[in-house]
């Protein structure tokens, strides 16, 4: 198939817009991974929960997702904090493989609890702005995605500043780097772990609110994003905030272009092949410093 440059440019733009959402989801994952050194199996289910929360805020309370995000992000921070403090940590006693199982158990509970409560219907919200487009030359870019793009970059920047500038941020980085040392110098490690888990979960709430206007929610919906988020975390270097952002945008573009060239099905292959190649030849990630 012949590809005009118009199409190619728009495909890149679409990829960047989608990639920003991926980045936001990966941001939560990389943060939790970088500090707790665990792979959080509940990440997809928590995203689903956040999408449900945004949906009901819209449908029941009449608050659209671009507003409710300011309430849901803190709420999900609290949820993440409490989950880590009251469930994951006590049940696993900090052991890696136990954390794996506990987060897996949480995922099963959340996903099926939502199914039990709300059935498996596909739910969508319908706002006039859901169909708005920004016209840029010949390109038609969905307004919701453009907003999501800038919001995602804003969140990543804020997170980066928070980690660099605040006491809590510095404590998080200290724990990530040298847990024992941080503990000895008086850092409350369980608290920092819970804060990190909370931040990761809050990122999901933001992602959910940005995603919902152009997407849908079912009890299984979050799983679709988990694998791609893992890929981004690895590409960006595990634990790296700028890496997750860059990795997200990169994967978005790769997915978009390879989907365009080889079809959406085979296009997915590109993501995982890059993932494997990066792991084999540059496991610290494309953007990570040498470990």
């Amino acid at each position: 198939m012949l590809l005009s440059s118009d199409i190619l440019i728009q495909a890149v733009a679409n990829g960047l817009l989608t990639g920003a959402i991926y980045a936001l989801i990966a941001l939560g994952l990389t943060l939790i991974y970088g500090v707790l050194h665990i792979i959080n199996f509940a990440h997809g289910a928590l995203l689903t929960a956040a999408l449900f929360a945004a949906f009901f805020a819209d449908r029941v309370l009449g608050i659209d997702p671009w507003i409710s995000v300011f309430a849901l992000a803190p709420a999900f921070f609290a949820l993440g904090y409490l989950l880590q403090r009251l469930v994951v940590w006590p049940a696993s006693r900090g052991e890696d493989r136990a954390i794996l199982l506990v987060t897996l158990g949480l995922a099963v509970i959340i996903e099926n609890g939502l199914l039990f409560q709300f059935r498996s219907d596909t739910r969508t919200i319908d706002h006039p702005f859901g169909f708005d487009v920004v016209e840029l030359g010949t390109m038609l870019l969905a307004t919701t995605r453009v907003v999501a793009f800038f919001a995602a970059i804003g969140v990543a920047a804020a997170l980066f500043v928070f980690l660099a500038m605040t006491d809590t941020g510095r404590a998080i980085r200290a724990v990530a780097k040298e847990r024992l040392g941080a503990e000895l110098s008086g850092v409350d490690v369980p608290h920092i772990y819970a804060v990190t888990f909370g931040l990761g979960t809050a990122c999901l709430a933001v992602a959910a609110c940005l995603l919902l206007p152009s997407y849908y929610v079912t009890p299984q919906v979050g799983n679709a994003f988990v694998l791609v988020a893992f890929t981004i975390v690895v590409l960006g270097g595990m634990g790296s905030v700028p890496g997750a952002l860059a990795g997200g945008l990169f994967i978005g573009v790769v997915e978009s272009i390879s989907g365009l060239l080889y079809g959406e099905t085979l296009g997915q292959l590109g993501i995982f092949l890059i993932f494997i190649l990066v792991l084999l030849f540059r496991p610290q990630g494309l953007f990570g410093a040498k470990a």
């Binding site: 995922a107 099926n112 039990f116 498996s120 009890p219």
Partner: peptide, 10 residues
């Protein structure tokens, strides 16, 4: 639907 798996997870 779902309740059994919730119990399983718990």
């Amino acid at each position: 639907p779902g309740l059994g798996l919730v119990l399983f997870g718990a």
